[in-house]
Simulated assay, not measured.
Amino acid sequence: MATPKTPRRRIDSQAGRAAVRNWRASTREPDLHQPSAAIAQDAAPTVDRTTLATAVRFTLEELASRAPGQALEVRVPPFGATQCIEGPSHRRGTPPAVVEMSPVVWLGLVTGRVTWADAVAAGEVDASGERSDLSAHLPIEDL
């Protein structure tokens, strides 16, 4: 099998990390007495739409660079989607494995404020397909 190619970067690393930091600063710290998925939805970030979009797009690029492949499509509407994870790739139509969630849940997952298990259990993540479990890839360290 050929080595998966790394997608081209569109978001500057410094700008992306700054957007993630700004999002993190705009949300409440986790309350240990609440399920983590509820924390993400209750966080109500106060960052502007551009910062939110940059943080989402940058973290999707980070996931794709750290877990290259085309077996899974991760969708965070309305800001972006990426393909990642090694395995069978798709070229047209709906991919065999798809994960979709809101921007707030996605950023909660990548920053470690929300666990994969809690987000899935709370119904905040729509995941289908055999490679749709992202728990081994989240949170993304060094953001």
Rank of each mutant, 00 (worst) to 15 (best):
P88Y: 06
L32Y: 12
Q41K: 10
V120K: 00
S36F: 06
K5H: 10
R91M: 12
V98K: 02
T111P: 04
L72S: 10
A2V: 08
T6Y: 10
S102H: 03
S65R: 09
L134W: 05
L109W: 01
R75P: 01
I11M: 10
D12C: 04
D133F: 00
T82C: 13
P78A: 05
T111L: 08
C84W: 03
W106V: 03
W23R: 09
W116H: 02
S135A: 13
R24I: 13
V74E: 12
T111A: 10
M1S: 15
T115N: 00
R28K: 13
P96F: 11
P103E: 03
E130D: 14
P35F: 08
T27C: 15
G93T: 03
L52C: 05
V99W: 14
F58K: 00
A15P: 01
A53G: 06
S128R: 15
E124T: 04
V56A: 02
E29N: 12
T111R: 04
S13M: 03
L138S: 03
R49W: 08
S36Y: 10
R92V: 13
S128C: 00
R91Y: 04
D42N: 15
E29T: 12
S89M: 09
E86L: 09
L32N: 13
R8H: 12
R91K: 10
A37H: 12
T27E: 08
K5Q: 13
S128G: 09
T82H: 06
M101C: 14
A19W: 04
D48F: 08
P45E: 07
G80Y: 03
E141D: 15
V120H: 01
S132C: 14
T59F: 08
P30N: 11
R17V: 12
A40D: 09
P88W: 04
G129F: 04
S89V: 10
P7N: 06
G93P: 00
D12R: 06
R113Q: 11
P95N: 03
A40H: 06
A117G: 02
V47D: 06
P30L: 13
T3I: 04
L63K: 01
A37W: 11
R28D: 14
A55V: 06
V120A: 06
W23A: 12
R75L: 02
D12E: 14
D48I: 07
T111E: 12
A121V: 03
S132N: 04
G123T: 01
G108E: 09
G129P: 02
R92A: 15
R21L: 13
P45H: 11
Q41V: 13
R113D: 13
A44I: 09
R9K: 10
V20S: 07
D48V: 08
V114K: 00
H137A: 14
D12M: 02
T50V: 14
R131Y: 12
T50H: 14
A43H: 00
P78G: 05
V74N: 07
E61W: 07
G69S: 07
L109I: 01
A127N: 03
P30G: 09
E73F: 04
M1L: 14
R8L: 13
D118R: 00
S65N: 10
L63Y: 07
A64E: 09
K5A: 15
E130K: 01
W116N: 00
S89D: 12
S135W: 05
Q34W: 15
